[in-house]
Nucleic acid binder design. Structure first.
Lengths: 237, 237
DNA sequence: CCCCATTGTCGCAAGGTGAGACAATAATAC
DNA sequence: GTATTATTGTCTCACCTTGCGACAATGGGG
C-alpha cells in the first residue's frame, strides 16, 4: 500500500472526531481499531491542501458513517508536543505493509483539531477505512484504552457537549425524527450523567418552543400512550 | 533580514490572539501594524517544532505585552482555504527586505488557532516585534480594516467572551487588583454591550463568593465613597 | 452647614425550577 | 366486560433568582 503524501495533505495537521450516538439508554461513541495491532483510536484523518478544515472533518464523518447532514462542531485543538509518539504510527503503518523513511511526515509531530458529532444511532452503518479492521460503538464507560491523548479528547468533548446542552438544546440530534418525551429525557440524563425530574423536564422542553407535538402513538405498552414529538430546525451550529 | 525556516517552526500552522483590555469604559484590543505597509492584523505567530501549541500563544503574548500570568484561552481554529492570500504575506516580507522563493512555506496556506486574552490594560507596555511598526489599543468599534479573516476572529472572540462571562465570571481579569463595584459593572456592560441594573448586578457579584471586600476608599469624588474589592483566585481556565 | 450625586441595602413582583400529587389512559389480567 | 397497573400529561406549592424601584447613608462641594 502507498503512504499518503504531503502533495495531497497538509503535514502536521489532523482532525479527530468524537461521534456520539444514543442506544439502550447509554451514550456511545465510535471507536476504530487499527488493522492487526489491537490498537484503538478515534476516527480521524488528514486535511487536503485544497480543502477547508471543517470540510475535512465532515468528509471523514461521511466516509465512516455514510451520513452528511449531521450536527458537527469543532471544540478544541490539541497541540502538545507530548502527543508525538513516532513508534505508534510506525506500528500502524508496518501492520499494513507500508514502509516509510524514518523522517517521513507521518512519523512527525501532529496537531489535531477535535470535533464532536451528534447522530441518530440507528441510521449509521459504520464502515472501516483502509487502515482499520473495524469501527464500532462503545459505551463511554466501557471504552478500550485509546491511543495518544484520545481519552482526554473524549473527556473534553463530553464537557463541551454538556455545556452546549443547556445553551443550544442540542440533545435532539441524537434521536430519530419522531420520539417521546421519555426518550428525550433519557438522552439528557445520559449526557449529564444524572437523573432529571420528569415534570420539570417536560415543562422546560415544551417551553423551549422547539418541539412539535404529533398524534398519540399506540405502541404495545401497557399504559397511557405518550405523545410523539418532532424537532423544528434540526440545524447545525 | 532572514526569513524563519521550517527547521524551527511547523509549517501551515499559526496562532492569533485577541487581547482584550478595558479603558475609558470601552473594551479594546491590541492590533499591530506591519512595517511600511499600513496593514493591520491581530498579533500572532508560529509554533516552534519543540513547543506546545498553547505555550506558543503564551510566548507570543509575553513578547508583545511583557505579561505572563494572564487569562488566555483557545477558542477556535480557522482553517478555510480562502484564508490563503499569498500576495499579502509577500508584501509584508518585501517591506522588510526579506526575499523568499515563490514556493516558500510562508506564502502557502495557513491554519490558525485563535486565542483570546484578558489583561489589565494599565500594566501593559505594548512592544512591536521585528515585522511591525506599532502595536496599539483600538476600541472594538473603531478597528482599522484587518488582514485575512481577522475581523471574523475578533467577532467570534467577542461571542466566546460573552458566553464565558456568565459561566466563569471572567470579567475581573480585565481590572487592576483593586476596583469598585461600579468599575466592574462597566466592564460587564462593555462586554455585553448593554446596560445592567445596579442593584441586581451588585447582588449577583456578591453572591458569587469570588469577591473580597476591602476598606473604604476616599478618592476625591463628591459622594459616598464606595468599597473596593479584590478577586479571590485570579486563576486561568 | 446644607446640598447632591453616588453607594449599599432592602422589599416587592414576576418568572423559573424542584418536587410531589392527581386524574387520564392503554394494554393486560381476570 | 371489568378491574388492575404502569405510565403519562398537567397542576400546584414552595423556593430561588432576577428586574426594578425605594430608601437611608455618606463624603465632598458650594
Amino acid at each position: 500500500m502507498q503512504a499518503p503524501t504531503t502533495a495531497t495533505y497538509l503535514p502536521h495537521l489532523a482532525y479527530d472526531s468524537v461521534v456520539f450516538g444514543f442506544s439502550g439508554d447509554q451514550l456511545k461513541i465510535l471507536i476504530m481499531e487499527y488493522h492487526k495491532t489491537n490498537w484503538f483510536a478515534l476516527p480521524g484523518g488528514f486535511v487536503r491542501r485544497d480543502e477547508n478544515l471543517n470540510d475535512a472533518a465532515r468528509r471523514g464523518l461521511r466516509e465512516r458513517t455514510g451520513l452528511d447532514e449531521v450536527y458537527l462542531e469543532q471544540f478544541y485543538t490539541f497541540g502538545d508536543t507530548a502527543r508525538f509518539r513516532p513508534g505508534v504510527m510506525e506500528g500502524i503503518l508496518a501492520a499494513n505493509d507500508i514502509s516509510v523513511a524514518s523522517d517521513h511526515w507521518l512519523l512527525d509531530r501532529f496537531v489535531t483539531v477535535a470535533y464532536y458529532a451528534l447522530i441518530d444511532y440507528n441510521t449509521v452503518v459504520p464502515r472501516p477505512d483502509a487502515l482499520s479492521d473495524s469501527i464500532n460503538w462503545y459505551a463511554l464507560d466501557e471504552l478500550p484504552p485509546l491511543l495518544f491523548d484520545h481519552e482526554e479528547i473524549v473527556q473534553r468533548a463530553l464537557v463541551t457537549l454538556r455545556e452546549n446542552l443547556g445553551k443550544k438544546l442540542v440533545g435532539m440530534n441524537l434521536l430519530p425524527p419522531l420520539f417521546t418525551m421519555k426518550e428525550l429525557q433519557r438522552v439528557y440524563e445520559a449526557i449529564l450523567g444524572e437523573k432529571l425530574h420528569r415534570s420539570s423536564f417536560q415543562r422546560k422542553m415544551l417551553a423551549s418552543g422547539l418541539l412539535e407535538r404529533r398524534e398519540k402513538r399506540l405502541s404495545g405498552k401497557a399504559h397511557k400512550a405518550p405523545y410523539q414529538y418532532r424537532f423544528l430546525s434540526k440545524a447545525n451550529p
